[in-house]
Amino acid sequence: MLAKRIIPCLDVRDGRVVKGTRFVNIRDAGDPVERAAFYNREGADEIVFLDITASVEGRRAIIDVVRQTAEVVFIPLTVGGGIDSTSFMQELLESGADKVSLNTAALKNPALIREGAEQFGSQCIVVAIDACRVDQQTGSESRKWEVYSHGGRKATGLDLIDWVKKAEAMSAGEILLTSMDADGTLDGYDNEMLAAVADAVQIPVIASGGAGTLEHMYEALTRGKAHAVLAASILHYGTYSIAEIKEYLSSKGLPVRPVNK
């Protein structure tokens, strides 16, 4: 049986990590390579870099970050943010990334998912989705969650369930689902949304947005039917260590990869 994965997500801008306060024991908490290595030692099952660099030139920095990380971190590495071509995907994969995460570019051009999957294998292609609950007063009956693009700034009018089914049909390997309602609240993941997506597709779903407690993670992996949980603040601010998260999940009967084994 597959272990439930705990995945730290690092926001990177111009080659630097932009979040985190507790890193007293590493030399440079803003260095994505050091931070990735730190989480690797702590027992992370994967690392996600989300590049939030605004400029096209600045994006080159992420290639170096990936390359340097791949030299010292031997767990899967996913890179997302601004990836809009198979040539950029190839550069990232050749630099040591294992997966690329597509968001806005896939919404603009869904065929990009298929092109990436055909060229590199569907296991390389993660479709990241930012979704928001639709106001039931104004929203249609059938549509509960709407997909947003451009880092959650632009409503697309797309129904979440329609979009995940389409992404799967285009050979996406995984769905990384962020609830914009829950994100940053520390009140827990949107488990209803997670479960609706997990029921709609066969591919694994990674839960993102809202983790504040260990119970929240457990809930996302059980009620929310997620395969993995992405965590940012809860790890970066030192609320819990990965070992604590895994011990808790394990005590509740979920399979996890033991830390330091």
Partner: peptide, 10 residues
């Protein structure tokens, strides 16, 4: 019926 790819730690 099985989620594929089989992806993750096993």
């Amino acid at each position: 019926g099985l989620p594929v790819p089989h992806v993750g730690w096993n």
